[in-house]
Simulated scan of single mutants.
Amino acid sequence: MPAPKIKLCGLNDTAALAAALDARADFVGFNFYPPSPRFLSLDLAAGLGAQAAGRSQRIGVFVDADDAAISAAIDAARLDGIQLHGHEPPARAAELRSSFGLPVWKVLSVASAADIDRADGYAGAADFILFDAKTPKGTLPGGMGLVFDWALLGRYRGALPWGLAGGLTPTNVAGAVIQTGAPLVDAASGIESAPGIKDPALIAAFCAAARAA
């Protein structure tokens, strides 16, 4: 089995991004959701986007954002892809894909088999599905360090490529890859020393563990 692709999400300073690039992360995620501790202003996004240029694919993370906010972030960070982490239906994913001409990733929050089955509705509308843990009502939609039952992924037979998120750390990512065969793994809180504060040592350890699986 080939090593999984790696996405490191919520990078918000030059040192963290440098560590991610040195660890050869395939994708770096920039969070444009204001309530998140990983939120990135457009000014900072411009600098980080330039820093990552040519070394990693830059993915913008949005939660039920309007076109103007997405457009501004694309322009500032020179984004290579759009990740939808809210309640965006397939029609919205397809609309953004058409409007901006960029790949669209749709995050599906998983607590049951029915949540896995929702992925089929995004075939032809999104380019990639990211299965994440469902967070409690009234909390942030991701980055909470929660893990879902990976056995549920055995149901997925969809057409879209997919990745695994939700509570992945340097300690558990190898086991996750072995159990699920995930072709991509995504970490946010699992590479932090505190919410929103990335740890370069954990970044390096996560990438090494994912590839070693």
Rank of each mutant, 00 (worst) to 15 (best):
M1E: 10
I6S: 07
L8H: 04
L8S: 02
G10P: 12
L11Y: 04
A18Q: 11
A20M: 06
L21N: 09
L21C: 06
D22K: 08
A23Q: 06
R24W: 13
A25C: 11
F27V: 06
F27R: 02
G29Q: 06
G29M: 08
F30S: 00
Y33I: 03
Y33C: 06
P37D: 08
R38T: 06
R38M: 09
L40R: 09
S41Q: 15
S41K: 15
L42C: 12
L44W: 04
G47M: 07
G47D: 12
G49S: 07
G49F: 00
A50P: 10
A50N: 08
Q51P: 00
A52Q: 05
Q57R: 06
G60Q: 10
G60H: 06
V63Q: 11
D64G: 09
D64C: 12
D64R: 12
A68Y: 03
A69M: 15
A69G: 06
I70K: 07
S71M: 02
S71N: 04
A72K: 11
A73D: 10
D75E: 08
A76M: 13
A77K: 06
R78G: 10
D80K: 13
G81M: 09
G81S: 11
Q83D: 04
H85Q: 05
E88Q: 11
A93C: 15
A94S: 15
A94V: 07
L96I: 08
L96T: 09
R97A: 11
S98H: 09
S98G: 02
L102G: 05
P103V: 15
P103E: 11
V104T: 02
W105K: 02
K106H: 12
L108C: 11
D115C: 14
D115L: 05
I116T: 11
D117Y: 02
G121W: 00
G121P: 01
A123H: 14
G124F: 07
G124L: 13
D132C: 02
K134T: 07
P136H: 15
G143D: 13
V147L: 15
D149L: 12
A159R: 14
G166L: 11
N172V: 04
V173Q: 03
V173I: 02
V173S: 03
A174C: 07
A174K: 00
A174S: 07
A174I: 01
A176Q: 00
V177S: 05
T180W: 04
P183A: 09
P183Y: 06
V185K: 04
G190W: 13
I191V: 11
S193I: 09
S193Y: 05
P195H: 03
P195L: 00
P195M: 01
G196C: 03
I197K: 01
D199S: 09
D199C: 07
P200V: 03
A201N: 14
F206H: 05
A208L: 12
A210N: 04
A210W: 01
A213Q: 02
